[in-house]
Design a binder for these strands. Structure first.
Length: 602
RNA sequence: CGGGGCGUAGCACAGCCUGGUAGUGCGCUCGGUUUGGGACCGAGAGGUCGGAGGUUCAAAUCCUCUCGCCCCGACCA
């Protein structure tokens, strides 16, 4: 392309709306423009980048036997009702009605459509496995789109689905996808890790998330440099350290603690206890939807005083159910004390017998227990602990000498606490965990039979019996790859595209368009580079050299060939955007040099 | 959905408090000088001040409503 004719609207200043570096640079480099919140247009440069990413996705999907489809983005409500997700998904789904008032939606993912094809067409285990994928636009009405292309309302996704006859087959398909994902992200030049993740409402047993480290990311990742352990903080565990529990009363005993409201207060209070010898008691309630027929079931969450609860772990402990912190007035109603003096000892009896409410039965009011049940759930770090101090469910009173398993009446121990940096790795027991921010770039799920069962997708197995197809689903966001690439590869002068996804391989900069010898040499070099199979941008604009250098750096083309004064000696300069090295090269050799460099990147 | 901020020329912003001719820089057009890291001089073009209503002799400026965008939180198949 000739720059003088090509649409690359670069900006000298940072746009006011952009906060994160990738957003600023993608706008400044003329890659994208915003249309509305979370809705962006790819400009020609952006489209070239997206096409290169998509080509890599295609090649790697095809490499593991993937077959490319193209499904509709507009779906009838019917299939979503069959899978149960029409009701399960909230306002994140764009819904509309057609002219006949039939309900429709814009696809936020394609499990339903692919499953409907599978159930109509797949009949025998002999047809399996199948690996199906597409590269399609998704629509999600995000509550808060943000950070440029990081969180969008409409975006391009490569989504793949595998169909196997049994779990062993799914394991193989899943492993294939995982390896393909690694090759994809490697080729795209990203620094990433694969982590264990929560499956959320997607359902299914196992899921791995691929994340790229960046300060702009929304996820927190714990990693161990020693053994390579990596997990999303919503799953991450660490090796607990237990203090010595000896000393203290044999049985729980109350003691006055006037004015003590927090864990911290109690650590300095005379006769108190350090944070790691306290039990923190939190009260949670089911979310707005409630849990089935149980009207309100308080949840007591117990943690070591110096530990922090991780919300997602709590929700996962209840099968992904929605929970919310109890309001102060609810806590007082439930336990008879304010936050700051809560504890598990005797709490179950207190809760289930304390509060009453009145309901109409026929024409008279009947008194019933308001909270007939309570869940008491404790973090694993409390297992076996003795001589602990906690609230006594009475304002300004605490209780010491508490043996967790003996006195706290716990329903179950689960991992609930948030891992923090500096803790010991639970896997290798020697490494120290690091916690950093990252963004999700891909996610692979073992779905199992969730969709095949609800939508009736079965095949006949070897014994002639119908069995539900065992499915997996695998997604990569194209804009996420682009965003992560910019987040991880930039400097003061602009973007430094990884070679494989750069919009052009090389830019030929004619430093002065008034000099005919430079123009001629540039034209000739442009054609030769193209003939060598390279994507070339010829900067033939009538601008000063400085402007051209600044722009070339900003849009991040990996190599720049500068035609200047030394052209009379048959010498040009080869500039490496990444290393910033500028090297004199013979004009006669520069094509093969650049060709070798560019091909090495693929 | 809760909290905060912002809408004035293509971009970045000033002007608003204290009502009275709509400004600056960059970019754009034309002419000239320049020509290796975002040149300089001169002359221009370009804005219903997000929208609607109100107060006033007079509204970018004050009031009400509304729309949009950004940030924090909640949420996130």
């Amino acid at each position: 392309m000739r720059w003088s004719q090509y649409f690359i609207p670069t900006l000298r200043e940072d746009p006011a709306d952009a906060e994160v570096i990738s957003h600023k640079l993608l706008l400044r480099a003329g890659v994208v423009r915003q249309l509305s919140a979370g809705i962006y247009s790819f400009l020609p440069l952006g489209q070239r980048i997206a096409l290169k990413v998509m080509q890599i996705l295609r090649e790697e999907m095809n490499h593991i036997g993937g077959q490319e489809f193209f499904l509709p983005a507009l779906h009838p409500a019917e299939i979503w009702k069959e899978s149960g997700r029409w009701d399960a998904i909230g306002p994140d789904m764009f819904r509309l009605t057609d002219r006949k008032q039939a309900e429709m939606c814009l696809g936020m993912t394609h499990e339903e459509v692919f499953t409907s094809i599978a159930r109509n067409e797949l009949r025998s285990y002999k047809q399996l496995p199948q690996v199906w994928y597409q590269i399609q636009v998704k629509f999600r009405d995000e509550a808060r789109p943000k950070s440029g292309l990081m969180r969008l309302r409409t975006f391009i996704m490569k989504d793949a689905y595998t169909f196997d006859v049994d779990n062993a087959g799914l394991d193989r398909s899943f492993a294939d996808q995982r390896e393909a994902y690694k090759r994809i992200f490697d080729r795209c030049g990203l620094k990433y890790v694969m982590v264990e993740a929560s499956s959320g409402a997607m359902g299914g047993a196992e899921s791995n998330e691929f994340v790229a480290r960046t300060e702009a990311g929304e996820d927190l990742i714990a990693t161990c440099a020693n053994c390579g352990y990596a997990a999303n903080l919503e799953k991450a565990i660490s090796e607990p350290t237990h203090p010595n529990d000896d000393g203290g009363p044999e049985a729980p005993e109350n003691f006055p603690t006037p004015g003590v409201r927090t864990i911290e207060d109690l650590t300095t209070f005379p006769g108190g206890a350090p944070g790691n010898r306290q039990i923190k008691t939190l009260v949670y309630m089911p979310g707005e939807k409630g849990w089935g027929n149980v009207p309100t079931t308080p949840i007591l969450v117990l943690l070591r005083g110096d530990h922090q609860l991780h919300d997602t772990k709590l929700m996962d402990a209840f099968g992904g159910a929605e929970v919310r912190p109890a309001r102060p007035e609810e806590i007082r109603e439930i336990l008879g004390a304010g936050p700051g003096s809560l504890g598990p000892v005797g709490a179950r009896t207190r809760i289930t017998t304390r509060a009453t409410r009145w309901i109409k039965q026929g024409d008279k009011d009947v008194e019933i227990w308001k909270y007939p049940e309570v869940h008491i759930i404790a973090d694993e770090a409390l297992k076996g602990r003795r001589n602990m101090t906690t609230g006594a469910n009475e304002d300004d009173v605490h209780k010491r000498g508490v043996d967790v398993e003996r006195d706290a009446d716990i329903d179950k121990f689960v991992d609930l606490r948030t891992v923090t940096a500096g803790e010991t790795c639970a896997r290798c027991k020697t490494g120290v965990l690091e916690v950093y921010k990252a963004m999700e770039i891909g996610h692979i799920f073992k779905l199992g039979t969730k969709y095949s069962k609800s939508m009736g997708a079965t095949v006949l197995n070897k014994d002639g019996k119908p069995v539900p197809i065992v499915m997996g689903s695998y997604g990569i966001g194209v804009e996420r790859i682009i965003t992560a690439a910019v987040e991880q590869n930039n400097d003061d002068n602009g973007i430094v595209w990884p070679r494989a996804i750069a919009p052009f391989d090389v830019v030929v900069t004619i430093t002065n368009m008034k000099q005919e010898d430079l123009r001629e040499a540039g034209e000739k070099l442009y054609k030769e580079l193209q003939r060598a199979g390279l994507d070339v941008l010829l900067d033939d604009r009538d601008e000063r050299a400085g402007v051209k250098f600044k722009d070339a750096d900003l849009i991040g083309i990996p190599y720049r060939i500068t035609l200047g004064k030394k052209i009379s000696d048959g010498i040009v300069e080869l500039f490496d955007r990444q290393t910033k090295q500028n090297e004199d090269v013979k004009l006669s050799e520069v094509v093969s040099r650049v060709q070798a460099l560019a091909l090495a990147a693929l």
